[in-house]
Design a protein around this nucleic acid. Structure first.
Lengths: 341, 341
DNA sequence: TTGTACGCGTTATCAT
DNA sequence: ATGATAACGCGTACAA
């Protein structure tokens, strides 16, 4: 391995000068710089990144913690993919590297470890739940003052850094739209209330219904686990209540598509006998037939923003005020919610 | 920051002993171990991962290079997501960390840099093309003897480590199946021949057609860029030739779905007026309507295997023989290729 | 079974 | 504008 020392010798300067050239620090004679760079090139010298991290006491890594479930092919989830892409862009821009950390929800969460071992300078937690010591682990992170951020999740009263989307508004608008099309009896299929975004969606939905002076009977509220399958299964209940269901709003696109598939097997087509709307505006919404009306969530932007804010904190080192960003969502209307009957 | 030194002092032992306890190296008295661990706990000591890497001269990182395209939200691609998940599992199992490196296809590729700077101990290259110095960069990696592996891509005559899928077989079987259903005039929509997997698919398709004694006229060969949009657009040409097209085989699911969507606008439904088959057996194949007949590719397994092999090489350090794994594909039959007319 | 001592390749401070 | 040199926190060979 070629080290700075050899470059210094060949260039006839001190090691410190070589460092200065490579870090662009301090004033230096152009001639000296030239000599050093030439020597470095001749020897094929490249600074050892680990040694740099060691000396700088910074890893240069932004950590992203993802829940890891052996059977589930996690990255497949549109949601994580988009957020990760957004983080990736910002990280690139800042010259950081992206350290992806897969953590099983089973094992006790210990995010603090990541910082104590200096593996990361900052980190973003995805898919955290109000659950199994995860909130505890986040509290500890905060106590110790590490720069971290939670995305698409809100922990009430904790003051964590958060980048969220306005899911209350998103659901509100989706429901409003369905109401505006004349539907009154609207079923809502949500995900687990363990996620704040599920709870937010229910709020938005209820608000819209209330404003329209409508009741939300329990039998019109379904719960799934955000999988296509759970939607497919829930559609059976919808079918049983078909006399009083005019529209279905699902908390993500996959469940919505599962619902449409099952209903079609019964002979009902979305946009004809029933209106269906989903959430996320994922690729699947465009691929489905009919294309799915859905609520766009700026996951990519959320990732970018989270990375930006958290890297700023890492660099400034200051005890910054916790931030809570909440990005707007937007309804995208497609055929699944048309009224052709 | 708590260091080994402080732990040693509190425990009344030398620094070396502390290291031994934490690395489980050499014989030691149970009593000593207890004292050290207790002191470490009291002080909340955690070994500095960077210092460890520095001393060991290993980063503990497996690098994964992904093509980065600002506009395209890359992780969205089913393909990358699945491979990454597979890599993630193996990396976890081995106690490594996953360093995700986004590289623009524009900028000159320099993978060697990753090793020279000691950022990674091994790496996996995804989405590499026979293009813009990328092959050169890979050759250099090989010359310098770094452990790396290319996934789902073959570079003929280079002897790179590769984990591929048998796309010749996959296409062959898909075409065979369509032929077995009685279709004779089959259009094939491929992706860019820049990718070896595209070329392989063409081979398999041609082979099946030849065996059936059928010509493959140029007008039955279309090319897209693996996007739904390109399929949607190409469907216009298919429609123009509708008198002589009985079936369409597309090189991925998204293009196949784009084709189905456009054809439906013209009034043709897959599985009725025309048969359609895709490739990848992605989520989209199950979400589409009708569900899409497709060729399953074990991307997850490919990622796992690539990580395993390349980490083995990194650890052994030996100049191992280059490996070339080729995993089987499998046809999954769904409604889009049924014959109901 | 444990301690001593050195090396790892930088960064950064303090002289010059 | 440049050189000397002290950290940085750990692994490990060697000595005891």
């Amino acid at each position: 391995m070629v080290t700075r020392k050899e470059v210094a010798e060949l260039a006839g300067v001190s090691e410190a000068t070589v460092s200065r050239v490579f870090n662009g620090v301090g004033p230096m004679k152009a001639e000296t710089k030239r000599k050093v760079l030439e020597a470095a090139q001749r020897l094929n010298y490249h600074p050892n990144a680990i040694a740099q991290s060691f000396a700088r006491r910074r890893s240069g890594h932004l950590g992203v913690v993802l829940p890891y479930l052996p059977k589930v092919h996690l990255f497949s989830a549109y949601y994580f993919s988009e957020i990760l892409s957004g983080i990736g862009e910002k990280v690139r821009e800042r010259g950081y590297d992206l350290l992806v950390l897969l953590r099983s929800p089973e094992e006790p969460a210990d995010y603090v470890q990541l910082f104590r071992t200096r593996k990361v300078d900052a980190c973003i937690i995805l898919g955290a739940r109000d659950h199994s010591g995860q909130k505890e682990a986040l509290r500890k992170l905060k106590e110790e003052g590490h720069p971290f951020c939670v995305v698409n999740q809100h922990f009430a009263g904790e003051g964590f850094n958060e980048v969220d989307a306005d899911h209350v508004q998103g659901s509100y608008e989706a429901a409003k739209y369905l109401l505006s099309k004349g539907y009154r009896r609207i079923a809502f299929m949500n995900g687990s209330p363990e996620y704040s975004n599920s709870r937010d969606r229910l709020l938005g939905f209820r608000r819209a219904m209330e404003e329209a002076g409508l009741e939300v009977p329990d039998r019109m509220l379904l719960e799934g686990n955000y999988s296509r399958k759970s939607g497919y299964e829930a559609a059976e209940r919808i079918w049983q209540q078909r006399d009083e269901v005019e529209a279905v709003f699902a908390a993500n696109d996959r469940m919505a598509i599962g619902i449409m598939q099952r209903l079609r097997e019964y002979g009902w087509t979305a946009g004809k006998e029933i209106a269906v709307a989903g959430y996320d505006d994922s690729d699947a919404a465009k691929l489905s037939d009919p294309p799915l009306t859905s609520v766009y969530v700026p996951f990519y932007e959320m990732g970018r923003l989270a990375a930006e804010r958290v890297l700023d904190q890492a660099i400034s080192g200051a005890e910054a005020e916790p931030f809570r960003e909440k990005l707007p969502t937007r309804l995208v209307i497609r055929k699944s919610s048309e009224r052709t009957f």
